[in-house]
Amino acid sequence: MITKDNYQQSIKPYQPKPKLVQNCIKAFVVGGLICVVGQGLTILYMELFGFTAKEAGNPTITTLILIAAILTGFGVYDKLGQFAGAGSAVPVTGFANSIASAALEHKSEGLVLGVATNMFKLAGSVIVFGTVAAYIVGLIRFTAQTLLGS
C-alpha cells in the first residue's frame, strides 16, 4: 500500500535505476580519452617548442579548455556529458564547459550583468573550495616542514 508515510520507499520500483556499471565504464573510457588527448598535446608541445614536461602543462590545459569551450558553443559538450557523466565533468574540460555554458546562457542579459556576473555561477564553488583546500594543505605542509626542521 502506497501511503504518504512510506511514499519515498514504496515508489522506488517505479524509478529507473542509474546504470552504475555502464556509467562507470563510459566515464572511464571518455575520461581516459580526454587525458590521452591531453598527453598527446603535452608531447606535441614538448616536441614542437622544446618545452619540458612541466612547462608543457599550462599550454596543454589551455588548449583543452579552448577545445571544450568551442564544443560547448557548438552544442556538443552537453551531449558528451550526458553520455560520459563524470568522465567529461571531472577533467578540466568539464570545468571549462560549466563556465562557457553559463556565459553563453546569460549573453542575453548583456556583457557585464549577464556574461561576467554569471559565468562563474556553477564554477564558483569549485574555485572557492579549490582555493580553501590549497590553503589548508599548504598550511599543513608549512607547519610540518617548520616542526620537522627540514
Binding site: 542509474p18 563524470a86 560549466s98 553563453l104 546562457e105
Partner: peptide, 16 residues
C-alpha cells in the same frame, strides 16, 4: 535556465 542548469551544461541527467 530558470529551474535547472544552462542549456549547454554537460551535467548528466537521470532517467527520471
Amino acid at each position: 535556465r530558470q529551474f535547472r542548469y544552462p542549456t549547454e551544461y554537460g551535467g548528466q541527467k537521470p532517467g527520471t
